[in-house]
């Protein structure tokens, strides 16, 4: 039983993977969308242009302001309005003009370019994650790690520095060249 189910599922997956993109592509490129998968996606919407990638899809983009399909499917109201659109546009009221626009386009530029305020969410999440990381760091430092080794203590480091001077490390251009051994201090 499980085997049969698995086989059926796999076959369905493969079939979807193979057939669907092909259908979309051929439909979009040839324009023969009637009765095709594309038509089931876009309904009765008119295909009016190339769009941004040749697919009959709708996206509000400012770099490609005129999408490939109209936003609304035609209905009686809008078809009547389209008939009047063929006449003088000055006879159309503001509402008619808005209705025509909304039939073709989903959002105006002002609408789809309006700030969403999402940046506040982003900043908030980023700062919370950083503060969580700081809590983890100081928690580990306090409860988990051993204290720093003795070589980090002030007197050990002073002794190590004295040893470096005694060995005259890097005497030409380095640290010992800047040390005055007669006065036992830095060269002024």
């Amino acid at each position: 039983m499980a085997n049969t189910l698995l086989a059926l599922g796999a076959r369905q997956l493969i079939r979807n993977a193979i057939s669907k993109p092909l259908v979309i592509q051929s439909a979009a490129m040839s324009g023969g969308v009637e009765g095709s998968y594309t038509r089931t996606l876009i309904g009765k919407r008119e295909i009016v242009g190339y769009g941004y990638n040749g697919e009959p899809n709708y996206v509000d983009r400012s770099d490609f302001p005129l999408p490939a399909i109209r936003w609304q499917e035609p209905n009686a109201d809008i078809l009547a309005l389209r008939e009047r659109e063929k006449g003088d546009w000055k006879q159309l009221s503001i509402e008619d003009k808005k209705a025509l626009y909304r039939a073709s386009f989903r959002q105006t530029f002002a609408e789809f370019k309006a700030p969403t305020g999402e940046w506040k969410y982003m900043v908030g999440v980023t700062l919370s994650l950083i503060s969580a990381a700081l809590w983890v760091f100081f928690g580990l430092k306090t409860f988990v790690y051993a204290p720093l080794p003795d070589s980090f203590k002030e007197e050990n480091r002073a002794a190590q520095f004295r040893r470096i001077l005694d060995l005259q490390v890097n005497p030409i251009e380095g640290i010992s060249s800047k040390w005055d051994y007669e006065k036992d201090d830095w060269k002024k």
Partner: peptide
């Protein structure tokens, strides 16, 4: 105007503004 598409005309003005 010749293509009888007022919506496109309005959209173009918006796009110019953009």
């Amino acid at each position: 105007r010749r293509a009888n598409d007022l919506a496109m005309a309005i959209r173009v003005i918006e796009a110019v503004k953009d």
